[in-house]
Design a protein around this nucleic acid. Structure first.
Lengths: 214, 214
DNA sequence: AGCTAAATCCCCCTTTTTGGGGGATATAAT
DNA sequence: ATTATATCCCCCAAAAAGGGGGATTTAGCT
């Protein structure tokens, strides 16, 4: 078939999902929209990667728990090969570690599997127009990851100092940045270590990040 | 009026927006939904904060460009006073710096002002059920902030080393973590500095973060 | 087979940084 | 009046960082 240049082109989609029923269900659902075309479906990342340059999908629906290569690793590999592909994770997991790993690996969205059919179609539309569809719970986790602990034991100045320390700066560099004497910074850091009950930079940074103080 | 305990309670909402027309428009729009109640509207953060404990809103719609206190600072102050309030930013700005500042300050969502009325009502519903509604562009920015540069000049080992260095660890601590000799780490770091054209830890970390290598 | 990139380890050296100890002072908030 | 916060000062020893010069091994590619 030949389309004129003004005709809206179909969006090529592949699916990576090991459960046959779920996979076929997704394929059927997506194919019901005329603008979408499911060019292939796979049971594993390995298979999807084999045909990646042949399929050249614009969107990939992907499960994370897969036989063989884990989905997160699959995302990493696929994005390396086709940097512009939009990978939409469809997973049962709302475990924060996994969610962030998937996003860091290059996912463009994350939908929980309990989402209805319409949510999945909405997500495809959303990702096509440059968005990053996420289920409520996921979006909230992502946004919260930006937010600091409101009950920090540290003063604002101490927090400021710790932030600069976490950027790898030396006491003297921090002093320069804050227009105070190096000894002042030393003093702040002593207090920070006391409050966090640590006695080294690395421990302080680790604890501060874990407690979202910085 | 008295509601029985089983009746769905109204959601109390306040609005902080300096433009009279926009503010009244929002108020009218939101009041059209029976489950929502606009308890007050304000032209500035200062005014909103004055009545915060009296209003006790569950959701605040907030503009960022405001006379007096800036919206970001307002978010910070309000969240300190009422940590459980959900602040929904409604702003024309899609400037990444401002978006992240607002989210870091404690916003639960970020909708661009060109969004239609239904999008705003949807966002309120979404935030009520624990989500973090964001306009497409914003969500994409947020998700991209998790993703690293795919064309890093560093090898994976070097990246690994730099990540640990950025956590404030010493050469020997890194060597311990990676089960190699301290001199190996030194060697990697020399190479990293060469590739990034820097000659100190702080510069390397700064450059690596700016280029999203870590 | 030859080349290259990557990762590993070794020595030299000096300067800087860190962490722990002991303080003091001024200001602002409660 | 007391406390918290921020500022600055000294001493000291150990650790770390940075720069210079190497070497070896492995894996991948041509």
């Amino acid at each position: 078939m030949t389309n004129s240049s003004t005709t809206t082109r179909e969006t090529k989609i592949t699916i990576v999902e090991d459960n046959d029923v779920v996979r076929d269900g997704f394929a059927l659902l997506i194919s019901s929209v005329s603008q979408h075309r499911v060019v292939n479906t796979y049971e594993s990342c390995e298979d999807a990667i084999k045909n990646l340059f042949h399929d050249r999908p614009e969107i990939i629906l992907m499960d994370l728990e897969l036989p063989g290569m884990h989905g997160v690793e699959g995302i990493r590999k696929i994005k390396k090969m086709l940097p512009d592909v939009n990978i939409l994770v469809i997973s049962v997991h709302t475990n924060s570690e996994l969610v962030f790993q998937a996003l860091c690996a290059g996912a463009s969205g994350y939908i929980t599997k309990n989402a209805g059919h319409s949510k999945i179609l909405d997500a495809i539309t959303e990702v096509k127009k440059g968005g990053a569809p996420m289920s409520s719970q996921i979006a909230r986790m992502v946004v919260q990851s930006f937010q600091k602990n409101t009950n920090s034991p540290l003063t604002s100045r101490e927090t400021e100092v710790l932030e600069l320390l976490a950027k790898g700066k030396s006491y003297s560099a921090i002093a320069n940045d804050l227009f105070v004497h190096k000894e002042t910074i030393k003093s702040h850091i002593k207090n920070i270590y006391g409050k966090l009950q640590v006695n080294s930079k690395a421990d302080a940074i680790e604890k501060a990040i874990k407690q979202r103080l910085i």
